[in-house]
Design a protein around this nucleic acid. Structure first.
Lengths: 330, 330
DNA sequence: CTGAAAGCGCTAACAA
DNA sequence: TTGTTAGCGCTTTCAG
């Protein structure tokens, strides 16, 4: 296959300068109609396609944004990724994905190597000073970094957790366990706080063992179910800080011959795809993932295309209680 | 914030030429020890970081691969995406994601705009001539394009489907429906073929209505369950060509007061995360998604870094029957 | 071992 | 309206 045509080939074929070709393609109105036609014909004849990398270098921008998340395999992220891709794609920006769990040196270069115009950060666990070292705009999605006050898009996790626990209280439960998330994670903390606050608000106590360690995964949820079954007295309800762990919990209950919600009420957090179709359907806090991804992408794209800084505000989207079949009165 | 240091700034600070700085950084052994030290000091002092975009342009490569899939929101893809990211990242390549469902013109530019060195294509529905028009290597993952014989990595879907149906036959089922996938999709066809072949091999017949239209989604699976319930006689087992649709099917059976596997055996295809923890756990054909993504990425990365063409072979990975609780003897 | 100079392929001032 | 001329920031001959 012969070498791909460059702008010079087109210019020659059309009998004009390369500058004219460039203009005919990117600002057609500033070129004579007849010239433009000649150029377009030459483009068609040569099969010319502009080299985006060269244009980007010249214009000192990358026309790309980076999505940085821990564990891309997590299905929680997929909807967000899709929404981001959608918005960015419509704006003519490429989306690059990266794993935030790789070594810091590799990450540090990300925001400064000229290959990305902005970052969507879904991991609140990165060192604030590293993120500050990037010289492209950064927006946090879902999570946030304590003390680095970056622009962000998220829900009020603490309030969501309170709603969840309040729902259980409303059903008459008075012994409510909480299955936590990964240690150190901001969401884990906020949601566990909400659990505590709801109980305190209702004057209901809890024992040390009622806050069960977790990590948002199904396997860990299953393990928690076994631990729960061994407790005496058993909590009559459990607030799982993620849907995945709730699903794992329920599944393991089933394997132990215990029924949800008859033997224990279970509520989750996130409202992932499968929750609605689980058996029983999972009562949970709905987190609008597509909207979160979309809004974050829109804010970032706006900043990037305007060449402006991101406004530092936090966009807080609503979450809501989605009552389904996994919770019942005591 | 002051302007980011360029290679010229470093050169000046170190009292050497830009060429030497470049060499000190990328081929340290070809520079005098003392000079190298001076350069590194200057790098540290200026906070210099090479502009990757400029390097890439000069070297005429993008150090990036593109992952092109329909509907990134589909959880089926997440594991593959993660595996690809992992392999590519380790090789120093960026992963760009794109939606294969956007308009053809936008897609056509993808493989020729100099911003990507290769494509992982997860959509068998793209026009072959467009893909042929790309001038970077392309590897198909999971799906394939009829008639364009591109390198690929996948399982034998027809054989997998046969295994699934054979399992039902072995359990004594003689009236086995098939819930299909999206029309025109290569996987739909291959899996439905496998269903037909297995039945034929066992001398078991099927009626026209036994091949139910589907699209791999849970909602459609649920709808199929209602259709199935209305059939007379009802098939005693159904082979769903995707796990998602199987889960939707089972869930809807539950809502109708019917039990799986007591009232109907259900088998899926893919073995997604949730299948193992569904109630009942889903019997299915395990498709090694991480391995598929990993191998495809490895092949592509090898070709890209060697600057060589991809060998045209199809890598066929093993799939296997994973028996769980959603199937039972008649 | 090091430096000067020529680009990668394109766009943006500036003139004409 | 069009062409000329410089670069974007780096790497890579080619000399020295």
């Amino acid at each position: 296959m012969r070498r791909r045509a460059g702008i010079a080939d087109v210019a020659q074929a059309a009998g004009v300068s390369t500058a004219t070709v460039s203009r005919a393609l990117s600002m057609p109105e500033r070129v004579g109609a007849e010239t433009r036609a000649r150029v377009l014909k030459a483009v068609a004849a040569t099969g010319y396609r502009a080299n985006a990398a060269a244009r980007d270098l010249r214009q000192r921008r990358a026309r790309a944004v980076t999505l940085l998340a821990p564990n891309l395999a997590n299905t929680f992220f997929s909807r967000i990724v899709a929404a981001v891709q959608d918005v960015a794609g419509d704006a003519g920006l490429t989306v690059q994905i990266s794993d935030s769990l790789v070594e810091v040196p590799r990450l540090a270069g990300l925001g400064v190597d000229g290959r990305s115009d902005g970052v969507l950060l879904l991991d609140g666990g990165l060192p604030a000073e590293m993120v500050r070292g990037w010289d492209v705009p950064v927006i946090m999605v879902c999570e946030w970094i304590e003390g680095a006050d970056l622009p962000g898009v998220r829900i009020d996790n603490r309030a969501g957790a309170r709603m969840a626990v309040q729902h259980l209280l409303d059903l008459g439960h008075r012994h409510i366990a909480c299955l936590g998330g990964p240690g150190g994670n901001v969401l884990s903390r906020a949601r566990a706080d909400g659990w505590r606050a709801a109980l305190a608000g209702a004057g209901v106590g809890h024992r040390p063992g009622d806050l069960m360690p977790g990590d948002f995964t199904m396997e860990r949820g299953a393990r928690a179910a076994r631990d729960w079954a061994a407790m005496a007295p058993r909590p009559t309800a459990v607030f799982c800080t993620s849907d995945e762990s709730a699903l794992g919990f329920i599944s393991e209950c089933d394997r132990m011959g215990l029924r949800v919600p008859d033997d224990v009420s279970v509520i989750g957090f996130d409202d992932i795809e499968f929750s609605d179709r689980f058996i029983p359907p999972l009562t949970t806090i709905h987190q609008p993932r597509a909207a979160l991804g979309r809004l974050a992408a829109e804010r970032l794209v706006a900043a990037v295309t305007a060449g402006a800084a991101l406004s530092p505000e936090q966009s807080i989207l609503d979450c809501r209680l989605q009552v389904r079949g996994s919770t019942a009165p005591v």
